[in-house]
Nucleic acid binder design. Structure first.
Lengths: 105, 105
DNA sequence: TCATTATTTTAGCATATACTAAAATAGTAA
DNA sequence: TTACTATTTTAGTATATGCTAAAATAATGA
């Protein structure tokens, strides 16, 4: 599989869009939370000690970009991961951050 | 290793910065090129069929953000990958894109 | 020094992102 | 209907990003 992105600019665009969709500290934290299952907005706000509108905006951004999906149950709206690639990516990032953090500090 | 990003906002910021640094189609392609070793700007421009100033700007952006490093040799400036995490990330992205692309098309 | 090749920088513009405070909407229950 | 909880939307502002064309800089060799 030599140089897929150079031979396939459309794939480069697609990959870049996924990365941009998650390249934000709060959005990464949200994805991490949702790895253990769906949560409603209020739960996420509490878990992150964040503000409601910002959290809602980030959730909608990720829905728009195909990372998450939502479902309403009564007054509450539950979000969950739609694109499993992002979980894989997070795991990969953890491994890298770990190997960087475990050097003698 | 439970929820490192939520318990460690600084790590969330750091990870987000790495992702933002590479979340661009041309920058991903440049990283892919440099995985096989350092290249000078002109070689990269040719390989990507890109414009000189844009390529130079993207290269400098990635240097500023700790992804690449440069060295001058005479009139030419060679760039190479500094942060090995980004190569790992690319490999992870390939695996995901592959598994998505290999479903019946 | 002058011309040429290699690369970077500048200025300007358009669009995207991120955040805030306030208002609006949706659903539930009295 | 009213009040309350849950969530989204709006308007405004600040900053970041991405691109272009043109000019500037750096190194080399005649």
């Amino acid at each position: 599989m030599p140089q897929p992105l150079i031979e396939n600019p459309a794939m480069a665009q697609k990959v870049a869009r996924v990365l941009k969709a998650i390249a934000h500290p709060v959005r990464l934290q949200i994805i991490e939370l949702l790895e253990s299952g769906e949560m409603c907005v209020g739960q996420i706000v509490d878990a992150l000690h964040a503000k409601y509108p910002i959290t809602s905006q980030q959730l909608n951004t990720m829905c728009d970009r195909g990372v998450l999906t939502q479902r309403r149950d009564g007054a509450k709206v539950f979000y969950r991961i739609l694109n499993p690639s992002v979980s894989d990516l997070l795991q990969c990032l953890y491994r890298n951050c770990d190997s960087h953090n475990t050097d003698q500090t």
